[in-house]
Every structure is written in structure tokens, then in C-alpha cells.
Nucleic acid binder design. Structure first.
Lengths: 241, 241
DNA sequence: TATTATTGTCTCACTTTGAGACAATAAACA
DNA sequence: TGTTTATTGTCTCAAAGTGAGACAATAATA
């Protein structure tokens, strides 16, 4: 069946990728009380960009994004959500891609598929910061964490994509179990609160937050966590399975 | 500047459209206490489908959707939201498009761009039922309203798209002013409640709903509406500008 | 042993919501 | 003209949820 389809309308112009379609992912992690995202820096260009990529002809869109995340973070089974499709003509800037390719020693003809117009499907991912080994790809010098409220200038409309991802995450905060994906298996109530505060960008009342979380009945309480600081030790919690 | 770009990476394989990219729109209307959507029926095939289309090379994605809606409904300035991108390989069924084209007298080669794999960006739109003149396109016999909970079998994964659109609409119900787009300029509190009930698919307590809506301070009260029925006449409301 | 910074829980006022009661009223009917 | 009926607008009362703070418990330090 796959063979039949392969012979129908095969598009050889994209090296096995779907032309005009890209994805970009905003990978959120949490560390040191701050919300962070992964950024790539392309060789010899000074361009910072979100980790993104293209979809292969025989590959599901969501799988393409997971493949890209696997390469950059080493993680499988990442929590992933679509957030928006950026499809304006104004994002068509072939010079940018040309510069990146040229800086990497690739000289492609002007009608190359990578220099065409792309719409990009933006995703956000939530991952456990400590489990990640950020890994640059062939075109990049680095893949590094940046504070979400202290980002360098980003390529193209990637700043808009980050903003949209953060807005979507905020809007989903009360409907999805966000902490589960950003925190280690066991965590203190304070850490959970800090995740919420980092996402919302504003402080939350401690007692109200604690009461609310406990009343949801989704947390399991474990032993205490002795940090060494001179005060009452907090309990550790995990999410109920 | 546009001319410069035009000469770069021009893709002549899609008759001026971006290959691999489609959109489908779930157009919601409200009439007779029911939530309805627009469906097209393709000539000589028995296929029912959502109104969809393709993106031109020099056109914004969102504008392409508005163009399609304008053609099918005659309306400008439609309330529109993205809801999801369907990008699985399993939706690649070139026979379906081939059948539709063949039934319309178009015989295209197997490598034609329309027979390639597409991802589709799903949108939902909210419109005032009474303002619409549903208009079929060149490939369709009809463009007609159907009860959202009494739909015919739909082509491809269009049933999934409708489900996703409805879920998204439900999730947005408390954050966006949905009634404003589905109702006429002036409406009764009962009509507004019926919109909410139709979207949520469950009854709402009348007194609580009325209290809530009034307390939001977004409604302006006008004169009474005398329907001719033997009971107290309700006020008419409009949304404050 | 006293001190200090945090944590877990409780209280109290205030707001929101669920559920129902009830009077007002537009047209139909006797 | 007065009565009936279905619906509408508003009110009440209890239950649940939230904001803001008080306070005792406690892990390490002085």
C-alpha cells in the first residue's frame, strides 16, 4: 500500500521532505526558579533560532517534531502541544536561509526548495530540565537554555512564536497538568508554585495555592525533604498516577 | 521587493498554490435552537466535505481561509480561529481527490500536485446564520447547513476535524465572546442561553446563567420583544461596543 | 536553649454558584 | 372584563470557593 502511494504524485523537489512546511518548537524547561527555552545558534551567522525542522514525505507531522526533539534533547515521549500556524507571506525571507546555508558551505541554487516560502507549525514542549542533554545539529554551534524573559534577538518571527507559545501555555495552565512535565518525579509545594509563577509571570498567594493544589486530589504526599536550611522541612509530593 | 522574491525559488508545480498545504473550515451557525455547520457535496460522488481550499503563493494563510469563506458565504470580516493541524500520513488518499476531479471532467496525471500528500490546517468560524447565502463552488452541487449532531458521513478525516473544532469552541467558550458572532445584533437572554447550550451540548440553569451574563457587564438592555406568545415578554440585549 | 526562616493548617470575611421561590406580565380564554 | 398559562426577571438561602492573614510546628544555627 505504501508502495502504491509512493508512486503517486511523488515530489522529488524536496529531498524527501514536504515542501513549504516547517515546524518550530518552543521547548520549556524549569530550573533555578526560572522558565527556560532551548535556542540554537547557527554557525558563523549570529542567528538564534528555535529548534525546528521539516516533515518527511512518509512521516506524520507530529512524529517529525518528536524526531527533531529527540535529536536535540535525547528524550522520547515528550509532552507536546500544537499552538499556532504562522503562515503570513511576510515571513518569506529566503536571504536568511541562504545566509545560513552559505555559512555552512552549502551553495544552493535560487530555486532550491529550502529557499521557498514556508508556513511553520509552532509547537510547545514541556520537559524535565535535568533529563536533557542539549545537542546542536549539523548547522548549529550550540543548543542552549535561555531564560524566557531574557532572550537574545531571534531569527525571523521566532520571537512571536515564543510569545504565542507562552500565551497558549498560560491559557492551558488550569486545564492540563503542566507541573508533571516540568518537574522531577518528587518536588516540594514551593517548587510547584514557582513553576506556576514562572509561567504566569506573577506571584501567587502561597496559602491559597497550597489549599487549591491539595484539594484537587492529584498529589501524593511522601516524606520530608531536608534541604539543610534552618527552617521547617517541606514535604515532597508526586503526581498520582 | 515582491518582484525580487518572486524570482527566488518560484514553485511552478502547484498552479500558483503552495503544494502540500490545505485548510478546512468548520463554519458554525445557529438557527432554530441548533448549532449548524456548512457542508459541501461534490458533484456525482456523494462525498460530503468541509469547505476548504489552498493557499496561493503570494497570499497569507489566514487570508486564504477568508477568501474561501467569502466565496461560500458572501461574508467579510468573519470571526475565525485556528484549531488544529492534521498532518498524519494516513490522511493521504489520492484516490479520493482523483475521484472528485474525474467526476468533474478533470483528468489529471498521477503526479499532479492535487494528488500529493496534504496537511490541513483546521479553522472554525462563527457567523450569523441569517446573513449567509451558502454558495457551492465549481466542484460542488451544494453548500448547505447541517445540524452539528446530525451530520452525514464525511470525507477523509473531516469528521475528526469537526469534533476538534467543537472541542476547541467549547474550551474557548468562557474566554471569547462567542454569542456576539452567532447571534443577530439584538437577542433575548433565552437565545443567548440556547447558543451556550448548543455548544456545550448540555442544559444550563436559567437563573444562574442570567445572573452571570448580567454581572459580566457586557450586555446592553433594550426594549422588550413581543413575540406574540402568551407570557411575559423578554428584554432584548446587545453586546456593548 | 533561644533564634530564624519556612511550612502546614486554620480562621474569617467576602464572592461565586447551585437550587429554588415568587411576583410580574403578554396573550389566550371564559 | 377577569382568569388562566407559560415565561421572565429578580430575590433568597445554603454550599462551595477565594483572598488575606494568623499561628503553631520545626530544621538548622548561634
Amino acid at each position: 500500500m505504501a508502495t502504491t502511494k509512493k508512486n503517486v504524485a511523488e515530489d522529488t523537489s524536496g529531498d524527501g521532505y514536504l515542501t513549504h512546511i516547517a515546524y518550530d518548537s518552543v521547548v520549556f524547561g524549569f530550573s533555578g526558579e526560572k522558565l527556560k527555552i532551548l535556542l540554537m545558534e547557527y554557525h558563523n551567522t549570529g542567528f538564534f533560532a528555535l529548534p525546528g525542522g521539516f516533515v518527511m514525505q512518509e512521516e506524520n507531522l507530529n512524529d517529525a517534531v518528536r524526531r527533531g526533539l529527540k535529536e536535540r534533547t535525547g528524550l522520547d515521549n515528550i509532552y507536546l502541544e500544537q499552538c499556532y500556524v504562522f503562515g503570513d507571506v511576510s515571513r518569506f525571507k529566503p536571504e536568511v536561509m541562504k545566509t545560513i546555508l552559505y555559512a555552512n558551505g552549502h551553495n544552493v541554487p535560487d530555486n532550491h526548495w529550502l529557499l521557498g516560502r514556508f508556513i511553520t507549525i509552532a509547537y510547545y514542549a514541556l520537559i524535565n530540565y535535568e533529563h536533557v542533554k542539549p545537542t546542536p545539529d549539523a548547522l548549529s554551534d550550540s543548543c542552549t537554555w535561555y531564560d524566557v524573559d531574557d532572550l537574545p534577538a531571534l531569527m525571523l518571527d521566532h520571537k512571536d512564536i515564543v510569545t504565542k507559545a507562552l500565551q497558549t501555555l498560560q491559557a492551558n495552565l488550569d486545564r492540563k497538568l503542566v507541573g508533571m512535565n516540568l518537574l522531577p518525579a518528587r518536588f516540594t509545594m514551593k517548587a510547584l508554585q514557582q513553576v506556576y509563577e514562572a509561567i504566569l509571570g506573577e506571584p501567587i498567594r502561597r496559602t491559597t495555592f497550597q489549599r487549591k493544589m491539595l484539594s484537587l486530589g492529584i498529589l501524593k504526599r511522601h516524606g520530608k525533604h531536608f534541604s539543610g536550611s534552618a527552617n521547617k522541612a517541606p514535604y515532597l509530593y508526586s503526581f498520582k498516577k
